[in-house]
Simulated assay, not measured.
Amino acid sequence: MFDSIGWAEILVLVVAGLFILGPERLPEGAAWLGRTVRQVRDYATGAREQLRNELGPEYDDLQKPLKDLRNLRNMDPKRAVQNHLFNGDDPFGDDKGNQYPSNGSSRQGTSGRTPQRPLGNDEQPPFDADTT
């Protein structure tokens, strides 16, 4: 929860609380803040558990995009582009022993799709009216 708040910010908040509340009411304010944060955390945990119980296995399907976003946030852009280009559809790439092709071309057929042939000179690309 406090991943982005450092000691300097906490010190500024304590000093501001000291000026706003005064030294006699600061312990009461800190205790109230602690109780409120604990209560909000309990509500969030309860809501998460209730959602998990009601959705069952679909809850994990909802969690996967969030996990992918967390992985993307922690990945440097160069590695993300390389994984997307060379490892198929998985932009986050687990690097499970996959080797990059030596000729620089992307690997065909690793994502379960059949390789497509290039279009001829006068050939039109396929058109699907349902997707537009």
Rank of each mutant, 00 (worst) to 15 (best):
M1Q: 13
F2Y: 13
D3L: 11
D3S: 12
S4T: 10
S4K: 13
S4A: 13
S4R: 15
W7Q: 09
V12P: 02
L13I: 09
A16P: 01
A16H: 05
L18E: 08
F19T: 02
F19R: 03
I20R: 06
L21A: 11
G22V: 08
L26F: 04
E28I: 02
G29Q: 02
A30Q: 04
W32Q: 12
G34M: 09
R35W: 04
R35Y: 05
T36S: 14
T36G: 02
T36K: 12
R38K: 10
R38T: 13
D42V: 01
Y43R: 08
A47R: 11
A47D: 07
E49G: 01
E49D: 11
R52I: 01
N53T: 04
E54K: 04
L55S: 06
P57F: 08
D60L: 08
L62P: 08
K64T: 15
K64R: 15
L66K: 08
K67V: 14
D68T: 03
R70C: 08
R70M: 11
R70I: 10
R70H: 14
N71D: 12
N71G: 05
N71A: 13
R73N: 12
R73D: 15
R73Q: 15
R73T: 07
N74Q: 14
M75S: 09
P77T: 03
P77G: 03
K78M: 03
K78C: 01
R79V: 09
R79L: 15
A80D: 03
H84A: 11
N87M: 12
G88I: 07
D90E: 12
G93I: 07
K96I: 09
K96T: 07
G97T: 05
Q99M: 13
P101V: 02
N103V: 08
G104Y: 11
G104A: 13
G104N: 13
S106F: 07
S106L: 06
R107I: 13
S111M: 04
S111L: 01
Q116Y: 01
Q116C: 03
L119T: 05
N121L: 06
E123T: 11
Q124E: 11
Q124Y: 04
P126D: 04
F127G: 00
F127M: 03
F127T: 06
A129C: 00
A129F: 06
A129D: 06
T131H: 02
